[in-house]
């Protein structure tokens, strides 16, 4: 199995620098980090990838069974780390990926030495004494929203997204392709993401961790950010003055600065 091809692994930045893995969340692909890469490239070796079922990953490697749990996505991370033989890397995960990073760090502690969690949430659905921000019906609605944009995904688009070298006429980047996903695979990822509950895993995190949250984020509200910060021993919390769920796009300077400060403070 060629993990580099399967997960569309890209390595950028300074080959001599410490390694930082940038992992996209549910919705789009590694292009989400396009404003982060230039800010870290001078000092760090950057590893980007697409989870199987997203972006330009090998869609034939998708298995509904494997990706029905976050552990399946965490295996992607560990396998990418193994393929590059990473040691003590910093894993920067956006949204659900930050929880995937927690699971991966637990599985492969020698490979992941620190975590940056961008807009994390260990549980999206409300629970007794816990406010995640969503009800189970809300999640069903999201799945319906995915379905209603189902027609936006066409079979004609798949070869473009999967990158067919033998069809150069399809080489042009199609509109929305960063976030275009096979609807069946998107539904699996959405279900896995929004029905996950990884609150218990937070207390087992043993590596230096930075939690980044936004002032106003529908998906990961501030009380969830506070929950994550409190649950992870010794973690630090930075609140970014921006709205939405993607601070690395909406407030790239502040986000990059917070990540750089954290990286600079790590013991080397």
């Amino acid at each position: 199995m060629d993990i580099f091809r399967r997960n569309n692994v890209t390595v950028a930045g300074n080959p001599q620098g410490p390694t930082v893995v940038l992992a996209h969340g549910f919705g789009c692909d590694q292009n989400m980090w396009r404003l982060t890469v230039p800010a870290l490239a001078d000092a760090y070796r950057l590893v980007l990838f697409d989870y199987v079922g997203c972006g330009r990953s090998d869609l034939t490697a998708f298995s509904e069974e494997r990706y029905a749990s976050l552990e399946g996505y965490a295996r992607d991370v560990v396998e990418v780390c193994e393929a590059l033989d990473l040691r003590d890397a910093t894993f920067v995960g956006h949204s659900v990926s930050s929880m995937v990073g927690v699971l991966a760090a637990e599985t492969a502690p020698e490979r992941i030495g620190s975590l940056v969690m961008v807009a994390p949430s260990p549980r999206y659905v409300d629970d007794e004494g816990y406010h995640g921000g969503f009800s189970a019906q809300d999640i069903d609605e999201l799945l319906a929203s995915l379905d209603s944009n189902y027609l936006g995904w066409s079979a004609a688009m798949a070869p473009v997204i999967m990158g067919h070298p033998d069809r150069p006429e399809l080489g042009e980047e199609l509109k929305n392709s960063f976030c275009a996903t096979d609807p069946d695979m998107a539904r699996v990822f959405a279900r896995t993401t929004f029905l996950s509950d990884t609150r218990d895993d937070l207390g087992r995190v043993k590596v230096p961790t930075l939690v980044l949250e936004c002032v106003q984020d529908v998906i990961a509200p501030r009380e969830v950010g506070a929950f994550v910060h409190q649950a992870i021993p010794g973690s630090s919390l930075v609140t970014l003055d921006t709205t939405g769920h993607c601070p690395h796009l909406s407030a790239p300077e502040a986000t990059n600065e917070a990540i750089r400060d954290f990286l600079a403070g790590l013991p080397r």
């Binding site: 549910f26 919705g27 949204s95 929203s145 944009n149 929004f194 939405g244």
Partner: peptide, 14 residues
């Protein structure tokens, strides 16, 4: 709510 989630995960980033 479903639209909000879709907005945050797909629409706004794109």
């Amino acid at each position: 709510v479903g639209g909000k989630l879709y907005h945050e995960t797909h629409f706004a980033p794109l």
